[in-house]
């Protein structure tokens, strides 16, 4: 069932995002060509300027639109009229949440990757690539010295933090939308207030936690090794707990407090 939901979600979002990626791709190509041809002088200089402008706009659009689509999709498909369809399917509400969460994360990551790929497409040439590559290897070697060989662990933890962080942010938005649904009127306002509220609570928790951790591991804070050894793991653990909390809260609202118009 979860597979079917997931498949359906991916398809439903693809119809927006694939055309967007295509536009990005086309604009990247155009820009690469225009930059390569150094023939626009004088009045014609407006052409490459406009082209770059359009390209930058499209990059921003891809990221912003992906984000907006993920939010709208959750609301429209589950809490508006389509909710009558989704919540009477033979699936559990947590499956509905997970399918959307996974799809959102995948599309956001893919949008970021698409932007990177398009930047490469526009600006990359053998020289710049080998220069970038050289700098990366230089940086890694230095990091290895600083972190006494634990660079791999550091990067793994950073990756996990990034992924968990993404999931956390998505779930926080979902929870805010679900809380907004509980209000009889002004659901949008309710969602917004909920989002702000959850953010503030979360910030407070993290500040308190950081203060506690800081006071316990006092000398370690200055030791840069404490990052991969303590701080990141604690951060990962905290975010994990928040993720679980948001998930259960959202699921609880769907199971017990659902009230479609």
């Amino acid at each position: 069932m979860l597979n079917k939901l997931f498949k359906h979600e991916m398809k439903a979002n693809a119809r927006f995002l694939l055309p967007l990626y295509l536009i990005l791709f086309v604009l990247s190509l155009i820009n690469r060509v225009i930059i390569g041809l150094d023939i626009f002088d004088g009045a014609l200089a407006i052409i490459p300027r406009f082209s770059i402008f359009a390209y930058i706009v499209s990059i921003i659009a891809v990221i912003v639109v992906t984000f907006i689509i993920m939010i709208m999709r959750f609301y429209k498909n589950l809490l508006s009229d389509e909710g009558y369809l989704m919540f009477t399917l033979t699936v559990e509400s947590h499956q509905l949440i997970i399918s959307k969460l996974l799809t959102a994360a995948i599309w956001i990551v893919s949008s970021v990757l698409a932007v990177f790929a398009s930047l490469l497409l526009v600006f990359a040439n053998p020289d710049s690539i080998s220069e970038i590559w050289y700098q990366i290897r230089l940086g890694l070697t230095e990091l290895d010295v600083i972190f006494k060989g634990r660079t791999t662990l550091l990067f793994i933890e950073l990756a996990i933090l990034a992924i968990f962080g993404l999931i956390h942010n998505i779930l926080m938005i979902y929870l805010a939308i679900a809380i907004g649904h509980l209000f009889n009127g002004h659901k949008l306002l309710g969602s917004f207030v909920a989002y702000v509220g959850i953010s503030m609570v979360m910030q407070t928790i993290i500040s308190v936690l950081a203060a506690i951790v800081g006071s316990i591991f006092r000398e370690s804070v200055t030791n840069v090794l404490s990052l991969p050894n303590f701080i990141f793991p604690i951060g990962i653990f905290t975010i994990l707990i928040l993720i679980v909390l948001y998930f259960f809260a959202t699921n609880y609202i769907f199971r017990n407090k659902l009230n479609l118009e």
Binding site: K4, A12, E82, T90
Partner: peptide, 27 residues
Amino acid sequence: VSYLPEKTYLPDWMKVSETIDFFKDFY
């Protein structure tokens, strides 16, 4: 239980054939 609500609850963007595929998939 098969439910027909008062509202239009099928996604607007779907073709009729896609709605049939959807029902076939989930029921």
